[in-house]
């Protein structure tokens, strides 16, 4: 877990004067499932496309498996699977012809894995790509990307076009790949629920800037939420706000809902000292953690994730 498979340093990219990426620096740890979060137009796709070799960065560099992408050496991509949000592939090819092309281009092509994944995803191998639904195209692209025995997998909004059943199968496949082959996965998503379940690290991008990266456990550990009641309400709001690590206090009827960061146990002890009638921890989803985190960092959480 110490070494990283992808290192980015001050990656910058602009489109006609508009900054799409501003000096992005981050690392994807070996063997991790890294979730990239951000609103539409934040630069997620641009970042992933640069890593996949499709776009060239204006400045900065990125190393994949220790090799600089700027060098354009195609061999970097032998072990790099990429699934875009809307895979185009070759419309006039049949699915089987796409796989033939994969076999011809990748030296580590795994035919049996390809066949079994096709069965698993119920891919019609004889159909032409142009007649496939978007969901099926995504699945074909995933099968292609997995059959090359990748060490790094880059997925751009992969679950967006899938129905719930297919989405679950997709996530399961990714998990199996990461667990079984030790493949490192970098994927962008709008869906915080998917990320919460599958990712171990996340990075947040907004308007081309990287806000923060964190291990998911640490992120979730760092913020907690508690609900307290005081039997005679002796104007405790002020006292609550003075507690260590408090980010926000919201009064809902008789209850106070406190969001705080830092050590849970110590905070609880401090709360008991105020003599509340009832005290209970409230579940905090990743989304809640996000909202508080963004507020803390001075960003308004004005978009839907």
């Amino acid at each position: 877990m110490n070494s990283s498979v992808i290192d980015m340093y001050k990656l910058t990219k602009s489109y006609e004067g508009l900054m799409a990426l501003k000096e992005i620096s981050m690392s994807i740890p070996q063997g991790s499932i890294f979730g990239l979060i951000g609103p539409n137009g934040a630069g997620k796709s641009t970042l992933l496309q640069i890593l996949a070799g499709i776009l060239l960065p204006d400045s900065g560099y990125a190393n994949i498996l220790g090799k600089n992408i700027r060098d354009l050496g195609p061999q970097i991509r032998q072990e790099l699977g990429y699934v875009p949000d809307v895979p185009h592939l070759y419309p006039s090819f049949t699915v089987n012809e796409m796989f033939t092309l994969g076999r011809k281009l990748y030296k580590n092509w795994d035919e049996s894995k390809c066949r079994s994944l096709c069965d698993y995803f119920e891919i019609p191998a004889g159909k032409r790509v142009r007649n496939l639904s978007r969901g099926l195209k995504v699945r074909v692209a995933l099968v292609l990307a997995l059959s090359i025995r990748p060490r790094v997998l880059i997925l751009d909004e992969p679950t967006a076009g899938l129905d719930p059943v297919a989405r679950r199968a997709f996530l399961k496949t990714i998990i199996d790949e990461a667990a079984g082959q030790g493949t490192s996965i970098l994927y962008s998503s709008h869906n915080l629920n998917d990320l919460e379940q599958t990712a171990d690290h996340i990075g947040v991008i907004k308007q081309g800037e990287l806000l923060f990266t964190s291990a998911l456990d640490e992120l979730k550990d760092s913020v907690h939420k508690t609900q307290v009641f005081f039997s005679p309400d002796h104007g405790s709001a002020r006292a609550l706000k003075a507690l260590p690590g408090v980010i926000q206090v919201v009064q809902q009827g008789k209850a106070y809902i406190i969001t705080a960061s830092g050590d849970r146990q110590a905070f609880r002890e401090a709360l008991w000292a105020l003599d509340p009638a009832l005290l209970e921890p409230i579940n905090l989803s990743l989304e809640d953690v996000f909202i508080t985190y963004m507020k803390q960092e001075g960003y308004s959480y004005d978009y839907t994730i």
Binding site: M1, L171, D176, A178, G180, T198, D200
Partner: peptide, 18 residues
């Protein structure tokens, strides 16, 4: 195993490993 558990629960394998 970590792998089986991750697959069963669809949970990140690193989390299981931890």
């Amino acid at each position: 195993t970590v792998r089986e558990m991750a697959s069963q629960l669809t949970i990140n394998p690193n989390t299981i490993a931890k």
